[in-house]
Design a protein around this nucleic acid. Structure first.
Lengths: 147, 147
DNA sequence: CTTACTGCAAAATTTTTGCAACTTT
DNA sequence: AAAGTTGCAAAAATTTTGCAGTAAG
């Protein structure tokens, strides 16, 4: 199955019509895992489909979030950003550069979830736990590397 | 020292002039720890000072955040919310009701920080770690109680 | 052929900005 | 008095909405 067909199937399984626009937007998010904003998604998508409208991008992103196919990430600069990775993971926020970097650590995840299971929080069902890590780069020119 | 004088002193120590507007806004945030939005802060503050302008509320919240006297919390509904509690703590997000509840657990904090200290992340200085807990209420009418 | 989706433009919402008048130090 | 802050209104930025036309199942 081609990547496009796979994406079309993901959409259908989520109960959404596999339109050309949705396929392009979802594939853009699978390709760019740097948490693009709506406007950035629009720019990327326009290269493939120049006639797509910004309104469609907004509506589609909202649909994909509601269907659970992507995640929405709120940032302190007031922009929403979108994440094609839906498996459990955390985010490292580099304030100065507006970078959001994925951080995935299964054993830490398990450690926290085990701790929280023992913790009784009355009248609350915990759905998801992730870390919010604020950090800054030591050398701004170099990339981040997580062991 | 009166609470107002204490707040004025906090402002001055942070290098900000202790204007009547800032004192009222900061005291509102100390009083309302439910993470009010800019508009909610404005509404609260107007009761005390009906002539304050919304623009001043925005500018002041920004100044207070920059000075480290309060924190900004980004939400997925696109509103910024503000937090008068600056000690390390986590947030529980109740999506359906838009509630944000503080969650403070020193031993969990220590557990995570000890784990992360051992974890080598090249070219990154970690500044702050907190949990992002998504949850929902079991009985919507009852309050949350954290043991 | 029915239902859902797109494109467009207009509107709504939230936040920022510029500047004269005013307070704080 | 100097420096910084406020209030106002206008502008910017982001997101949502309505609806006629179009595409998908």
């Amino acid at each position: 199955m081609s990547p496009t067909d796979q994406i079309a199937q993901n959409l259908k399984e989520a109960g959404l019509k596999a339109t050309q626009q949705r396929i392009v937007i979802l594939s853009t998010l699978y390709e760019h895992l740097d948490h693009p904003s709506s406007e950035e998604v629009y720019k990327h998508v326009k290269k493939v489909n120049p006639s797509i409208s910004l309104g469609t991008v907004y509506k589609t992103l909202e649909s994909l979030v509601n269907a659970g196919l992507i995640h929405k990430v709120a940032t302190s600069d007031g922009l929403m950003r979108y994440d094609g990775e839906t498996a459990a993971h955390s985010h490292i926020y580099i304030t100065k550069t507006n970078e959001i970097i994925d951080f995935k650590d299964d054993s830490l995840n398990e450690l926290i979830n085990r701790y929280m299971d023992d913790k009784e929080i009355r009248n609350l069902k915990v759905r998801k736990i992730s870390l919010r890590i604020e950090a800054e780069k030591i050398d701004p020119k170099r990339k981040i590397h997580i062991k």
